[in-house]
Amino acid sequence: MAQWTFLTNHAHVLLCVAANPEIRLKDIATLVGVTERAALRIVGELEAEGYLSRERVGRRNVYRLNPDRPLRHPLDKGHHIGELLEAFAAEPVDPDGAA
């Protein structure tokens, strides 16, 4: 049986960044279940379309989401990512698994 989920990897990346704006790309990849290269591609696509921005602070990136950007599928017309983020809001993500 093939595995599938209701949310895309792009949505999962947004949720990781929402939970921890200073998250490392390596940790995004681990949490989403993709390679670091795929995580970098997804972050780049989200940045290119204005869904997030990143600022270099020292050796780390700090991400900012634009919650007013629309969802991209025609069936989701009129909704924005802020609604998705609010619906799936979680405690900050600790990639090491500590509570």
Rank of each mutant, 00 (worst) to 15 (best):
V32L: 05
E83V: 10
V17R: 04
L7N: 09
A48N: 08
A89W: 04
P67T: 10
E49N: 05
E36I: 06
L65P: 05
L15F: 02
G78F: 09
T35N: 03
L84K: 08
G78I: 03
G97A: 07
G78L: 01
D68H: 08
H10R: 06
L52D: 00
L31E: 13
F6Q: 14
V43D: 03
A89N: 08
R41C: 00
L75W: 13
E36V: 07
L40R: 13
L46G: 04
T35W: 04
N66Y: 03
D76S: 14
H12P: 01
V57R: 15
I28N: 06
D96K: 08
L14S: 09
P21C: 09
L75V: 15
A48D: 12
R24G: 10
A90L: 08
K77H: 09
N61A: 13
V93S: 03
K26Y: 06
P67L: 08
A19L: 07
I23P: 08
D76P: 00
A19N: 11
L40V: 02
A19D: 12
I23R: 11
E49S: 03
R24I: 07
G44D: 10
F88E: 08
A38I: 01
V34Q: 06
G33P: 07
V13P: 03
E49M: 01
G33N: 08
A98W: 13
E86S: 08
F88Y: 14
H12A: 00
I28G: 12
T5F: 11
A11F: 03
L14D: 02
G78P: 06
V62R: 15
G50V: 01
H12K: 13
E36T: 12
N20A: 14
E36F: 02
T35H: 00
N61W: 15
L46C: 06
L25S: 12
K26L: 08
V32F: 02
N66L: 02
R59Y: 15
G50F: 04
L14E: 04
L52Y: 00
E86M: 02
